[in-house]
Computed example of a mutant assay.
Amino acid sequence: MLPRRAGAANATRITQCRLPMGVAEARRLGIVDRVLSGEELADISLVQRGATMASDAGFAKRLAAKRQRRAADEAEKPLQSYRDEELRRMKLNFYGFDPSYHVARYNFIHKVPKSRTPLTIAGHRSRRAPDRPVGMVVPS
C-alpha cells in the first residue's frame, strides 16, 4: 500500500531511513487521507463518523474495489511470500554475523541511552553553516 500511496521513491526513503514523521508530512506524501482534530477524536464522534461512512451510497462500491485490488495484489505476490521474506531477514538478524541487532536489543532492554542523536534528526547541530560549502568547518 505504501508505494501506491506515496510513490516508490518515497516508500523506499520512509522504510529505509526510519525517521519520525509528523502528520503534515504524512498528509503531503499522501499516506493519510485526513487529520482529525481533538473534537473529532471523541468516541461518539468516531462512532458517528463510522456509521456515516458505512451508510454512504458509495461504500459498497469502494469496498468491492478494495477487495478486487487486494485479490489482484495477492495474485501478483501472495502475502505469504512477504511473510517468508521477512522471516528470512529476521533469521539473518538473529543468527547472522552482524551483531548490531543484538547490541540494539540489549541497549533497548537495558534502557541504555543513545550516545548522540543522528544529524539527520538533529540538523541544528550541524557544524556546516548553510551558506558555506561542504568541507569548510565552522569553529565551535
Score class of each variant (00 low, 15 high):
E76V: 07
D131G: 07
T15N: 06
K77R: 15
A75L: 00
P99F: 05
V138A: 11
M1C: 05
V112M: 09
R132V: 14
V134N: 07
R4E: 15
A42C: 13
L92P: 03
M90D: 11
R70A: 10
R67Y: 12
D33A: 00
S140H: 11
R18A: 13
A54L: 15
A129R: 14
G58V: 03
E25Y: 01
L19Q: 11
P130F: 05
T52F: 11
L29A: 00
G50D: 07
V32N: 00
P113N: 03
I109G: 09
R34G: 01
L29S: 00
M53I: 11
R125S: 06
S140E: 12
P113M: 08
R128N: 02
A122H: 11
E76N: 08
R70L: 07
K77Y: 11
Y101P: 01
R34H: 03
A129K: 12
A65C: 04
L36N: 02
L2S: 05
A57M: 09
K61D: 13
K77S: 06
M53K: 08
K114D: 10
K66Y: 14
G58I: 06
P113H: 14
A24F: 04
A60W: 00
P139S: 03
E39Q: 02
A75V: 02
K111L: 05
R67W: 13
P99T: 04
V138M: 06
I44L: 09
R5L: 13
Q68V: 09
K91W: 09
K77D: 09
V134S: 08
Y101Q: 00
T15A: 01
A57I: 10
G7Y: 05
K114M: 12
D43P: 10
T120E: 15
S115F: 14
Q16V: 07
G135V: 03
S126M: 10
V138E: 12
V47I: 15
R88C: 07
A54P: 02
N93S: 11
R127H: 14
R4C: 08
S140R: 09
N93R: 12
P78S: 15
H102F: 09
D43G: 10
P78Y: 10
A65K: 11
M90F: 15
R67A: 11
R88A: 13
V137D: 12
A6K: 04
M90Y: 14
R4N: 12
E74H: 01
L79I: 14
I44P: 10
G50K: 08
H124P: 05
F59K: 01
D33L: 01
R13V: 04
S100V: 04
A60I: 03
L19C: 02
A51M: 13
E25F: 00
L19I: 03
S37H: 04
G22K: 01
Q68N: 10
H110P: 02
V35L: 00
T52Q: 09
A54K: 15
L79G: 09
R83D: 09
N107W: 08
K61S: 15
D73M: 14
F94L: 15
V23K: 13
Y101V: 03
L63F: 13
A122T: 08
V47R: 13
R49F: 12
A60Y: 02
R132G: 05
M1G: 05
G22C: 02
